[in-house]
Computed example of a mutant assay.
Amino acid sequence: MTRRLEPMGRVKELSGASVPFLFDIHALIYSENAPELERQLHQEFNDCRVNKINERKEFFKVSLADVKQKLLDLNIEVKFTLAAEAEEYRRTLQIEALPVEAQSHI
C-alpha cells in the first residue's frame, strides 16, 4: 500500500536487495480507504502467508484469481494483467533449465 501519487516509486523501493527479483505489477487498486482494504485482504489470506512467524513480512502465496475474486466480493473493480514482464524471473528459469555445465558460462 502507498499513499504516493506515483505508486511506481514505492514498487522500485520494494524491489531492493532484500527480495530475489524485481517486483512486477499485476494490478493497481485505488481505494478510498486503502488501509482497511489492505487489512481485509491480509485477513482473508492470512493462512497463505509466506512467513508464519513475523506478520510484518507481508508476502503471501496466493493466486491472482483468488485475489481478484476477493476484490469482486468486496465490489472493487480492478484490471489485472497476467502477462507481467518478470524479466529476471523468466531469465532465471531459462538458466535453470540448462545443463549445469552450461550455467557456469552465462
Results as ranks from 00 to 15, higher is better:
Asn46Ile: 15
Glu96Phe: 09
Asp47Glu: 03
Gln43Ala: 09
Ile106Arg: 03
Val78Asn: 01
Phe60Met: 10
Gly16Gln: 06
Lys12Arg: 12
Glu38Cys: 10
Ser18Phe: 12
Glu85Pro: 00
Ala17Thr: 12
Val19Lys: 04
Leu5Asp: 05
Val100His: 06
Glu44His: 06
Ser15Asp: 12
Arg56Pro: 00
Arg39Trp: 08
Asn54Lys: 09
Ile76Pro: 11
Arg10Glu: 13
Arg3Ile: 06
Ala65Ile: 14
Ala86Arg: 09
Val100Thr: 07
Arg91Pro: 00
Leu93Thr: 12
Ile25Asn: 01
Gly16Phe: 07
Asp66Phe: 05
Asn75Ser: 03
Leu74Lys: 07
Val78Tyr: 01
Leu22Met: 09
Glu55Lys: 12
Glu77Lys: 09
Ala86Glu: 14
Glu77Asp: 06
Asn75Cys: 14
Val78Asp: 01
Glu87Asn: 05
Ile95Thr: 14
Arg10Asp: 12
Leu5Met: 02
Leu71Cys: 06
Lys57Ile: 08
Arg39Cys: 02
Phe45Val: 03
Thr92Arg: 11
Asp66Pro: 12
Glu44Pro: 09
Glu55Arg: 09
Pro35Ser: 15
Leu28Gly: 14
Arg39Gly: 14
Val62Ile: 14
Ile25Tyr: 00
Phe23Trp: 14
Leu28Gln: 08
Ala17Leu: 04
Thr2Pro: 15
Asn46His: 07
Leu93Gly: 03
Leu93Pro: 00
Phe60Val: 10
Arg3His: 12
Phe80Pro: 00
Glu6Lys: 10
Ile53Asn: 15
Glu88Leu: 06
Gln103Glu: 11
Glu87Lys: 13
Ile106Asp: 02
Lys52Tyr: 03
Glu58Ile: 08
Gln103Leu: 11
His105Trp: 12
Lys70Arg: 09
Leu93Cys: 13
Glu55Phe: 13
Gly9Ser: 07
Glu96Gln: 01
Met8Asn: 05
Asp73Val: 07
Glu85Val: 11
Asp66Leu: 04
Cys48Ile: 05
Val19Phe: 05
Glu55Asp: 08
Glu13Thr: 11
Val19Trp: 03
Glu85Trp: 07
Arg10Met: 14
Ala97Asn: 01
Val100Lys: 06
Gln103Ser: 06
Ile25Val: 04
Gly16Arg: 08
Glu96Arg: 01
Lys12Val: 01
His26Lys: 11
Val100Gln: 13
Asn54Asp: 04
Arg90Leu: 09
Phe45Tyr: 13
Ala86Cys: 04
Ala27Gln: 06
Ala102Gly: 01
Leu37Ser: 15
Leu41Ile: 02
Phe45Leu: 15
Ala17Gln: 06
Arg3Tyr: 15
Ala102Asn: 04
Tyr89Cys: 11
Tyr89Arg: 11
Phe23Leu: 10
Leu71Lys: 04
Gln69Ser: 01
His42Val: 03
Leu71Ile: 09
Pro35Ala: 04
Met1Arg: 14
Leu28Asp: 10
Leu14Ile: 00
Leu82Arg: 03
Glu44Lys: 02
Arg39Val: 08
Leu82His: 06
Thr92Glu: 09
Leu41Glu: 14
Ala27Pro: 10
His26Met: 15
Asp66Ser: 03
Ala65Gln: 09
Ile25Lys: 02
Pro35Gly: 12
